[in-house]
Amino acid sequence: MEPVITRKQLEADLTELKRMVLRLGKMAEESISKAIWALKNQDAELARMVLAKDDDIDDLAEALDNACMHFAARFQPLGEDLRAVTSIMHMAVDLERIGDYGGNIAKVAVELADKELIKPLIDIPRMLDVLSAMMSKALVAFDTNNAEMAKEVFAMDDLMDDLEKQIMRELLLLMMERPQRIEQATQLLNVARTLERGGDHVTNVAERVIYILTGKTVKASAFRRPRPATPYAHKEHEER
């Protein structure tokens, strides 16, 4: 069996898988960005568009999953190719989940579209900015086979945690001041939590990129600032 013969076809198919991942990433990123904009600008129209797109993301994720199985069946890949195809399957799950988060946020945006916001949204869009940056970094790293760039994603997740905590503190204060705000504040709290989880998923993607390229399983925590072991932080990770 001369492996050389199939290499060209294998590479073409693998490139196609990569393109699908990038497309899925783009769609997920769009979904979550638009949802936050809709929330911020109280734009119910935009929020409904996000919800409508949710199925497309699911379809693409499923197609990607199938394509990976076909690829595995056809080439029985080994080494880097094997790492790539299994990782892409995991990445599809992570990215699809981020897309779902966009949908969740869009639902909140629809609900809050005709209500008065308890506060101008500043830190939540900032979280989105960080998340978008993480995503594009992770995807570019994946696209250009750049493990070093993928590692940069991990540190950015610290920023997400900081922002989430800040938002939480702020909202708690608002709730304590006036209990009528509790409903909306809880919703906004959930949005922040959702974004933070999105960050975790992007971190997973970055870990996968590094695994594909180096064969090493890295722990994102090794690249992040040491955190005081709060029981809360742990629980947050076990949930998923």
């Binding site: 001369e2 050389v4 080994l78 080494g79 880097e80 190719d81 064969g215």
Partner: peptide, 19 residues
């Protein structure tokens, strides 16, 4: 060996980059 070999040459061989 077949998922994450240490040596680049092994990687190249098992993925069929040369053979």
């Amino acid at each position: 060996m077949f998922t994450s070999p240490e040596d680049k040459r092994t990687e190249d061989y098992i993925t069929g980059r040369f053979g």
